[in-house]
């Protein structure tokens, strides 16, 4: 349903981050995107969500198509309204100085129907840990609670596609597991999920398909289970390559990365 074709994005007119990336999201799947820091994963999500302009980035080539209609000219509010696409930014995009209740209401700002109250209860049922904290400032919640709130806020927008940017950032392994369980549950309820992760093993385990991104390009793609078995992925992202010691120079499988920032 969502396809990205040969996309090139440049920040501040000089820093080239996405160099012709192409990928496709199919309806109802969990798509996992893995890659090192600076590979362009976050930029990709920002661009799809229509927020690249805010960060002074430009699409200089390529296209983003939703059901074969180009959406690269739309801004974030339009994309959300028309295509029910919600982007959950990295590092817990919550409003620290609003209460948890207010956070959920603020996230429902783009909606005008009168079901907001019942949806709020529904979201809180997904995340029971948030219930006792409803009237507390969100900034005082723990990291896991904040990330759950962030996903809960995204649910308030009634998404069909959810872009999750590193939801496991800074969370304990147990919490991460719980979170990924919830993500899988959301997917079962019919939400297409694009998951950007550093925690490649956990992410590929709940994903259907995966892409490996390097230097703003897709270098590898395939079924998630295949990727888990792939020699390169195991070595670079799962830290579990062959057991015998290797020479340091052999480790440079991909060409040296050139970074501008």
């Amino acid at each position: 349903m969502l396809s990205i074709e040969n996309l090139r994005v440049v920040y501040h007119d000089v820093i080239s981050v996405l160099n012709g990336i192409s990928l496709e999201v199919k309806e109802g799947e969990v798509l996992v995107i893995i890659g090192a820091n600076g590979a362009g994963k976050t930029t990709l999500l920002r661009t799809v969500a229509g927020m690249i302009g805010f960060y002074d980035g430009d699409i200089i080539d390529g296209d983003i198509k939703m059901n074969d209609v180009s959406i690269k000219e739309l801004d974030s509010a339009d994309i959300m309204k028309r295509y029910n696409l919600t982007y959950v930014m990295e590092d817990r995009p919550i409003f620290n100085y609003l209460t948890i209740d207010e956070n959920l209401k603020a996230a429902a700002y783009s909606r005008w129907d009168n079901k907001i109250k019942t949806d709020m209860e529904e979201v809180l049922d997904y995340f029971p840990v948030l219930k006792p904290l409803r009237n507390k400032k969100a900034g005082y919640a723990s990291g896991g609670e904040q990330q759950m709130l962030a996903i809960g806020m995204a649910l308030m927008t009634k998404p069909k596609i959810l872009l999750l940017d590193e939801p496991s950032l800074g969370l304990a392994p147990l919490i991460t597991e719980e979170l990924f369980g919830i993500i899988r549950k959301l997917n079962k309820s019919g939400i297409t999920i694009v998951l950007v992760e550093q925690n490649a093993y956990a992410a590929l385990n709940i994903g259907n398909r995966g892409y490996v991104v390097e230097m703003g390009r897709v270098v590898l793609d395939g079924e998630a289970q295949e990727l888990l078995k792939n020699e390169d992925v195991r070595e670079f992202y799962l830290g579990a390559g062959e057991s015998k010691r290797k020479s340091y120079k052999d480790a440079k499988r991909y060409k040296r990365r050139k970074r501008w920032l």
Binding site: K81, T86, P93, S110
Partner: peptide
């Protein structure tokens, strides 16, 4: 007021 980018991500213009 708290964060323009976050607000935009949640559909607030």
């Amino acid at each position: 007021s708290e964060d323009q980018a976050k607000a935009m991500a949640f559909g607030i213009n």
